[in-house]
């Protein structure tokens, strides 16, 4: 055994020596920027949320590599630890729902900044089984409405828009478990448009869906988030990150099949490909608006954030609407201006 292996080792030696010499033979360009490395922590499990997909593809298609950026991809369990880890400096970019970002900035005062708003419309919606006979939110009184953890501001805003008194409805905390809808423990269940409706339809149920945005409730989706400190001290890193992951998102829009393949590299076994495709399509649709067609993906304005903040204040989810430093377009501009060929 040992004797047989020895020749291989001898073959390896010159190869190793060659490999050691190799870098010195390649001319180094003085213009080449330094390599940077960072950790991206997705705000939830691996799935086809658009900001995740952008990163998965940037990694898979070499967009990060082209930016000379080494990115470690981590996933949060969605209990908020990604924001903790971001502020602790263990990750440089994470993703977060715009509304929750505003809440966490005020309480407990996390220095979070949206550097690109990918979800131009929020994913919060409410569904009931088609067989329940509920047609509009006006039909809700007398029925049980579920929520996850805390009632989403969109729910309160939606009720307000429909002139419903929250006291007249029975609200119950059900956590993430759409099964309570099909077993009829609740009549209305809050969903992410891009996620649970697919699951429930898959089980063979027809749904009625109410999208908060359809009732004039301002809502925003997922943003790429960094801390104020990293935005201030390392714009170069974030600019490279944005350039590559926005390119990833554009790539996903053009090659959705390939994008789903990239997602499946991260998800567990037996992930439903069609479910991921459904999620991707839904979020792609909500990422592209007149605004982004004019300014580019991820663009965000004072009006958008102010509208969301005002809604949150009105529903009591936020004590004051101060959005000036909750987002920045500077890095998006840098990414657009310094586009590499």
């Amino acid at each position: 055994m040992k004797l047989k292996r020895a020749p291989c080792v001898f073959w390896l030696l010159p190869l190793l020596a060659l490999a050691a010499c190799a870098p010195s033979l390649v001319p180094t360009s003085p213009a080449q920027p330094a390599r940077l490395s960072m950790t991206f922590m997705a705000g939830y499990k691996p799935q086809a949320n658009l900001p995740f997909v952008g990163v998965y593809l940037a990694q898979a298609k070499g967009f990060f590599e082209a930016e000379r950026l080494d990115v470690t991809v981590e996933h949060s369990s969605g209990r908020g630890e990604h924001m903790q880890l971001l502020t602790a400096g263990k990750a440089q970019v994470t993703t977060q729902d715009a509304g929750v970002l505003l809440q966490r900035r005020l309480d407990p005062g996390l220095p979070l900044v949206s550097i690109a708003l990918i979800g131009q419309r929020g994913q919060q919606a409410f569904v009931a089984l088609a067989s329940s006979g509920l047609k509009t939110p006006q039909d809700w009184p007398g029925h049980t409405i579920g929520y996850k953890g805390t009632p989403p501001p969109e729910l309160l805003a939606l009720m307000k828009a429909n002139g419903l008194n929250p006291q007249a409805l029975s609200l119950v905390n059900v956590g993430f478990d759409p099964r309570v809808l099909v077993t009829r423990q609740v009549d209305v269940y809050p969903v992410y448009k891009s996620n649970e409706p697919y699951l429930i339809r898959q089980w063979g149920y027809d749904l009625v869906q109410w999208d908060a945005a359809d009732y004039g409730v301002p809502s925003l989706g997922l943003a790429y988030v960094a801390t104020e400190e990293v935005v201030r001290t390392n714009p170069e890193l974030l600019t490279r990150f944005l350039r590559a992951s926005l390119q990833g998102i554009r790539y996903a829009a053009e090659h959705p099949d390939e994008a789903v393949d990239a997602v499946l590299q991260y998800t567990g076994p037996e992930t439903d490909r069609n479910h991921m495709r459904f999620m991707l399509e839904a979020e792609l649709a909500d990422a592209q608006t007149d605004l982004t067609r004019q300014h580019g993906l991820g663009w965000q304005t004072r009006e958008q954030w102010q509208g969301l903040a005002d809604m949150l204040v009105q529903t009591g989810a936020l004590s004051k609407a101060d959005v000036a430093s909750a987002f920045t377009t500077r890095l998006l501009e840098l990414a657009a201006n310094q586009a590499r060929p």
């Binding site: 499990k45 691996p46 996933h75 567990g268």
Partner: peptide
Amino acid sequence: EWTGASGGLGRLMWLAYTNLNLPQ
């Protein structure tokens, strides 16, 4: 692992739970 890991049974269980994939 359930509260965030890149591998292990806990993570598989968490993924399965969030997908409501009970056999898994």
